[in-house]
Design a protein around this nucleic acid. Sequence first.
DNA 1: CGTTCGATTGAATGTATTCAATGGATGTGG
DNA 2: CCACATCCATTGAATACATTCAATCGAACG
Lengths: 240, 240
Amino acid sequence: MKTIDFLRGRGAGAIDPAERDVLEARLSPPKSIAPRHTLVRRGQMVEFSTLLLDGLVGRYLEDRSGDRQLVALHVAGDFLDLHAFPLRHLDHDVVTLTQATVVTIEHAALEQITEKQPHLTRLLWYSTLLDAAIHREWIFRLGRLDGKGRVAHFMAETALRLALVGRCTAQQFELPITQSDIADACGLTNVHVSRVLRSLRMSGVLEVVGSMVTIRDQQRLWHLAEFDPHYLYLSNDISI
Amino acid sequence: MKTIDFLRGRGAGAIDPAERDVLEARLSPPKSIAPRHTLVRRGQMVEFSTLLLDGLVGRYLEDRSGDRQLVALHVAGDFLDLHAFPLRHLDHDVVTLTQATVVTIEHAALEQITEKQPHLTRLLWYSTLLDAAIHREWIFRLGRLDGKGRVAHFMAETALRLALVGRCTAQQFELPITQSDIADACGLTNVHVSRVLRSLRMSGVLEVVGSMVTIRDQQRLWHLAEFDPHYLYLSNDISI
DNA sequence: CGTTCGATTGAATGTATTCAATGGATGTGG
DNA sequence: CCACATCCATTGAATACATTCAATCGAACG
C-alpha cells in the first residue's frame, strides 16, 4: 500500500518513519465512498476521524434557506475531521464532492497517541492548525476580493495543494466539481461564477474545459488573487 | 491574582485545578499593552504564546493596498497565538485594539506540557480548534450574509463571547472599537457600517452609543444574523 | 426519447462602494 | 483659552458589482 500523503510537502518537523508506522498501524482498511455522500453530520458524536487518500471532500455550513457555504475543501492527505477528536462533535457537515477513498482511525487510538507520542501529537495538532490557517485565508478571500479575485484565489490555492500531493502537474489539474460548488466556496452565485470563468478565460489567465483546469498565466492569476502561499506552510524544498 | 478565564464556559471536559496550577505556574507576570500595538508580526519566529486577560485583540491579514481583513477578534480568556506553538510562526499579524493585559508562556514550557500532561495538551489543542470553528463561522458570515446580517452576526457572537467571561450583562457591553474595525471584520466599508448600524438602530434591534452596545431585541438580531451559538461549544449550563 | 443537470447569456434589480463634503468630539500647541 | 488639526461618524450622489429571474442549450442518463 502506498504511503499516505499526510503532511506531505509541509514545513513541520517531518513525521519520522517510526511515527508514520504508529499512525498507519492504527488506520482502518481503505474504503471507497460515493460522491455527494455525507460522512459526518453537524452535531453528531463521532468516535473516529477520517483521513482522505483520494478524491475531494467539502466541509459545509448551511444557512436558513438550506444554501451551503463551503468552509473547507480537502484533498488527498488531509484529515477531514481530526478536529472532531478534541471537539467530540463538529459544528459543520463533511461531504464528499467526488468519489473518495478514505481510511479511519478510532479516537481511542488517537487518545493513546496523545498519551505516548507527544511529537506525533504535535504533528496532528499542527495539521489542524493548517486547516485554520486556510480558513483565515478564506476569510480574507471573501472579505477583501471581488468575484474574479475570489475565484482566482480559490484556483491558485487548490492548484498548489493538489501539486503537493502529486495531483497537479504542468499547471493542470482535475477538478471534477460544478460551478455551483465553486460558488459555494467563493460566496457567489453559480451564474456569476460562470461569468467570472469566462472573463478569466478571455483574459488568458485560466481555462476550464470539462473538469480539467489549466492555469495559463500563474503570475497574473496570483496577482488577481493577491495570492501568497505563505499560509500553506510549505517546506522550503517545495518549488512552486 | 484572579483565576484566568481560559476556556471559561466551554464544553470541554473541564480543566481541573491541578492542571490550571500547572499552567498558571508557567505564566509570566501580567503586562499592560497600549492600543493599536502589534504583538506578533506575520512570519516572525515566536518563542512564547500570549494569553489575553483583558482588552480586545485582533488578528489581521493585509491585502496589497494595505487594507486589513480582521480574521479573528479575541476577548479575555483567549490565547492569542497558541497556534504559533505548533506552527513556529504565524501567517498573520496580532494587534491590540484596546488597552490590553496579557501574560505569556514560553514555548519550551508548552512543549514540556505536551510531554507530561496529555489531557492538558488536548485542552490546549481544543482551544485552538475553537478558534478554527469561529473562523468557519466568519467564512459563513462573509459568504452568505448581507451587510446587515454580517454586522448583526458580529455583534451576536461578540456579545455572547463577552458574556462568557463576565463582560456582557443585561444585553450590554463595551466595545471600544471604531466602525472601521467593524468594517474590517465584516468585509464592508466604514461608510456602509455606519448605514447598517443606523438601520439596526431604526428597526430597534441594536443600539450603539459611544462604545456601549445595547442589544434591544436579541431574537431579531439572531434571526437577521442566522445566528446559532452551536459553534462556540458552550457548556450545557450556560444560559444565553 | 424525454428528463435532468450543468453551463451560459440577457435584462432588470439591488446592494455596497467610491468619492466628496460636513460636523462633532477630542487633543495639542501657541 | 482659543485656533487648528485629527479622528470618527454621517450623509448624498454616482458608480460598480453581483444577484435574481428567465430562457436557452448541450451532454449525460435512464
